[in-house]
Amino acid sequence: MNEVLRVVENEVQLVALAIFVGMYLVRLNWLRSLRSPWETAAPKASAARGVLLSFGSVFLPWTMESTRKHFAVYVEFALFHIAVAIAILASFALPYAPQLLPQPVIYVSLFFLALGVVAGLIRIRRRLVNVNLRAINTPDDYFAITVVSLWFAAALWGLGTMSDLGLTVYFGLTALLLIYVPLGKVSHYLYMPFSRFYFGYTFGRRGVTVRKSQWRYN
């Protein structure tokens, strides 16, 4: 292992991670400082069940019209995010717990990373081609998807060859993303648990997504 890779894999990662955590904590603290009005009307159904359903809907594509109609987009979403998870886990496993990456695990990871790259390319293409998406997409969107797709490709290269150069690029991109994530579009990870919680809470307690059986009519 050359010295550059060692530094990128360790010191640089740790510094980037510290910046990432620091920025997230600042953001979370800011969110915490905002008012959060809660509904006080008597609930019609269960808010807790609503929240569970809301988070569960990520894994239940048939429950949402958009994913029912565009199942291919859902598959692409799933593959993209599986690749994200693998790339994140690998960035910790490689330097600190390489025993978690035996050959079969590496092969499976490579397979999903490759699919992630394909999903990323499809996403970039769609955002460039579709006039409706172009109307709302910003340079940040294109940059984020491109960098993440490149990150998958670098992980594919690094994990597949275990070459110093491949791994250096992979860890370099990981560090870049760690710093960029809290700033740009990828920061939706931070907000998504809140938004899905509010969704489930509101629609659950109002009896929209959680219904009472007494009114079953057929």
Binding site: L31, R32, Y198
Partner: peptide, 14 residues
Amino acid sequence: LTRQMAVNMHACVH
């Protein structure tokens, strides 16, 4: 600006 509003402002992935 409430927490719910801020989340709505930040979380759209277009």
